[in-house]
């Protein structure tokens, strides 16, 4: 038996909007720790890892570990039927082949339940080691989204170069080239507006902008984004989900042949 009650239902709606274009089908894993997901995109270039900790739910009952295969597009369709202020409860029976999403309006005058069919998904789970990254950039998530969107109108790939001086996003395309440099800036009124660059050593990596743009669909989840890089390793683009956990996107770099 599984019953997870989330007061801030809009968080789950935003999570689905953030990942549904990247991943088609995925297993949601439920354990005493929380509600989580790990999935790769269809071309196995990017990976998304989501964690919503048990403590973040108003009620969290998970009698035994459960893995529920869901089509994210269908799940998104159902969650779109929940109001932004609704409380969302996820319910499932052990060994059942459906999951139920229950939506309660804030003043309890409307209660809906949507039952969705589960699916068997054969997915490999990757072990992601804890890594000390050579460069960690924290910046406003909207600024990062803006840069990715702007550069993708010029080129297909972005070179992200981080050094003590700042972080440079560069692209080239048929019509020309572009560079955007963000310097460390901590003299801001609100901490979420700061750009903070921690560097162990300079890093420069090339990525497909199409994926970066897809990751920025998580922007509504957090005011800030953290981009962690080490030479020749996948980048991690992380959006913290307030008091609940995170959504992390891993993207393999492009390399010279």
């Amino acid at each position: 038996m599984l019953e997870l009650r989330l007061l801030q239902g809009s968080l789950l709606k935003k999570v689905l909007e953030a990942i549904k274009d990247l991943v088609t089908d995925a297993n949601f894993d439920c354990s005493a720790t929380g509600f989580s997901l790990q999935a790769m995109d269809s071309s196995h270039v990017a990976l998304v890892a989501l964690l919503l900790r048990a403590e973040g739910f108003e009620h969290y009952r998970c009698d035994r570990n459960l893995s529920m295969g869901m089509n994210l597009n269908n799940m998104s369709k159902m969650l779109k039927c929940a109001g932004n202020d609704d409380i969302i409860t996820i319910k499932a029976d052990d060994g059942g082949d459906t999951v139920t999403f229950m939506f309660e309006s804030p003043n309890q005058d409307k209660i809906s339940d949507f039952e969705m069919k589960l699916m068997d998904i054969d997915s490999e789970h990757l072990g992601i080691p804890e890594t000390e990254y050579e460069a960690i950039i924290r910046m406003p998530s909207q600024e990062f989204a803006r840069i990715c969107r702007d550069l993708s109108t010029i080129g297909d790939t972005v070179v992200i170069s981080a050094s003590k001086e700042g972080v440079k996003f560069s692209t080239k395309g048929d019509i020309g080239s572009a560079n955007v440099v963000c310097r460390q800036n901590t003299s801001v009124d609100k901490p979420e507006d700061a750009t903070v660059i921690e560097i162990q050593q300079p890093v420069s990596l090339t990525f497909a902008l199409r994926y970066m743009n897809s990751f920025t669909k998580a922007t509504p989840l957090s005011n800030t984004v953290t981009v962690s890089m080490s030479n020749e390793l996948p980048v991690v683009v992380e959006y913290k989900i307030a008091e609940m956990g995170y959504i992390r996107f891993y993207l393999a770099p492009k390399i010279e042949e």
Binding site: V45, L47, T157, A252, P253, I255, E257
Partner: peptide, 14 residues
């Protein structure tokens, strides 16, 4: 030319 690596080539399968 640049080649796109696969993410699964970086992390071991559990």
């Amino acid at each position: 030319p640049q080649q796109q690596r696969s993410i699964s080539s970086f992390f071991a399968t559990k």
